[in-house]
Design a protein around this nucleic acid. Structure first.
Lengths: 195, 195
DNA sequence: GTCTATACGGCGATAGAC
DNA sequence: GTCTATCGCCGTATAGAC
């Protein structure tokens, strides 16, 4: 690849990423991508085979970024509860929602195995990180041993994704914050030593 | 209105409802609506001003239906926990998701105050029902008094909406079931008498 | 009320010059 | 590598007959 390549390719991917995040697959047109990326049509069809191909690259970029963020958060220091709390309270653009989660509403993405894969993988990573930290917390006597780590992990991941939905429905970040705080309260009540 | 009216209008609304549910606003075209409803273009523009108008009617139908279901569930008999459990475990087409929640991903709907209103209202009703039943449960000594009912309600609503997302990401209902079961486990651990 | 015909714009892609 | 020109199709809406 020569010099100019990287710039155009890169800008196309980032532009697509943004548009997908806000408008999903069907709502994102090649024309809009070109406008936002500031490149011409020729560039796009040189670097990518078509819309689906470019979207896949953009998805992989979002997936990669979210997976890195997740792993970093859970690899950090602190008790199990502190790490969970850290992830739940991480700074977020609540009304915009999750750049990866947004995509699973789209039927065109759901219908294509390849386009669904980065999303599936990302949530698998999140689930594994959450389940691990819950198990650690149980081993350390921090969480009630009766909790099922897999289930708790799914609950926590769902609270985040669902929190975005509630926030958008109300046009305010408050429902999201309430959902997160509520989950943390429930979790604290499942900590035997915490009283 | 004369005889035939009701049928055409009705079929248009139901057809639109189904398509919105599966494909959202941008993914739903008038042409597709006509095909699914089995009525002609003339009918559609006779009964409705255009796409947005028809979509609004379909949204109101979905909203009304979900609100009724919610109120019925929470008006039923049983302890607070039992009613929450009943709602969370209600039969659902998990991979299809929520007919109302699906819409809040769509930027065109978010941008239009009128199109957003039925969604906002529906989640407000759900939230109020959930918060009420949590408060009742606390008054009855069923749930830990330290829980914040508003937060807990948001958490529970989020688990459902987010559960759909996780399920679709994995292409299986299991993550949804886990998330729901996990929420119920956490709730049970917040029941002092329940040991 | 419902139909068919028609309009205009934008989508997604291709062609071929430079 | 990137550009402009062009394509065929469909989305959304209107017109006007019946």
């Amino acid at each position: 690849m020569a010099e100019g390549d990287v710039d155009s390719r890169e800008r196309l991917i980032e532009g697509t990423r943004e548009l997908l995040w806000d408008r999903g697959y069907v709502g994102t047109s090649p024309t809009a991508i070109l406008r936002r990326s500031g490149v011409g049509q020729g560039s796009m069809y040189h670097h990518f085979q078509g819309k689906a191909d470019l979207v896949l690259a953009a998805e992989q970029r979002s997936a990669e970024r979210m997976q890195r963020q997740v792993r970093e958060t859970f690899a950090g220091a602190g008790s199990a509860y502190q790490r969970i709390r850290g992830y739940l309270l991480r700074e977020r653009d609540v009304l915009r929602g999750c750049s990866v989660g947004r995509l699973i509403a789209d039927p065109e993405i759901m219908a294509d195995e390849r386009l669904r894969e980065p999303i599936r993988e990302t949530f698998a990573v999140l689930h594994e990180c959450l389940a691990s930290v819950v198990r650690e917390g149980q081993a350390a006597g921090e969480f009630d041993a009766r909790l099922d780590a897999e289930r708790t992990a799914s609950t926590l991941a769902a609270v985040i994704q669902g929190g975005y939905a509630l926030a958008r429905a109300e046009g305010s970040a408050e429902p999201f914050e309430r959902a997160i705080q509520g989950a943390l309260e429930l979790l604290r009540l499942a900590m035997p030593a915490a009283e």
